[in-house]
Amino acid sequence: MPGAQPQTDTGPRVSWPRQRASETPARLKIRARDVNVHYGDNHAIRNVTVDIDDKTVTAFIGPSGCGKSTFLRCLNRMNDTIPICRVSGLIEMDGQDIYAPDIDPVLLRARVGMVFQKPNPFPKSIYDNVAYGPRIHGLAADRAALDHIVEQSLRRAALWDEVKDRLAASGTGLSGGQQQRLCIARAIATSPEVLLMDEPASALDPIATAQIEELIDELRRKFAVVIVTHSMQQAARVSQKTAFFHLGELVEYGETGQIFTNPRDPRTESYITGRIG
């Protein structure tokens, strides 16, 4: 597999704080080995091997069409819904093959939540948007338990104080940034273990973007967060690990600080410094 071997962060001294001092070392959450994705004849992902840590924000960066979103969608089997899409290779979560025949993709997606580029609240009340997942998965025993889940999720999404007096109002009536935080609340309401975010702030203004970024930093206390972003500054700001994709390959994967100060692959360097590559 020509040039497919990603460079990992095993290089010499990297003088960048890996984790906050108070945190325990990251634990492996998702292990992907030789993942290939084909859309019909298009070989979209080529031999991607990557380890994603728990309680860590991992950013996927790369030019449009590089495969970063496609790979993200492999992690909760969203690609299953596309008939011409074929995924091969191994993806394990906590040592369990998520493509194994006995895995129910619907249950998997409750464990691996997702937030999309454009805020897409259901045309329902704020309360029902958040309560939707817990209801269909039967996570709440009674109304009080559901109320609790809704409040907790909205609090974690840093939206509670803004909407607590109008939970019955429609989710679509909120501002863009609030809608996106509502979608995050909805995604975390099922107590997922991993949160996938595909360009979660690209449709938002700078203030709402900062709120989402602050939220991402909060969320990583509980979840593994994987974020696809076109904004390299955003990747640099929110993530601890960064993976650079190019033409379907994982070119380089390492500590975010190392990637942005001293990338080892010239393709990464070209991309993050804004050169023609």
Partner: peptide, 11 residues
């Protein structure tokens, strides 16, 4: 690596 930035003012 190409020498030129896409944004030439940066160069």
């Amino acid at each position: 690596m190409p020498d030129q930035h896409i944004l030439r003012a940066f160069d």
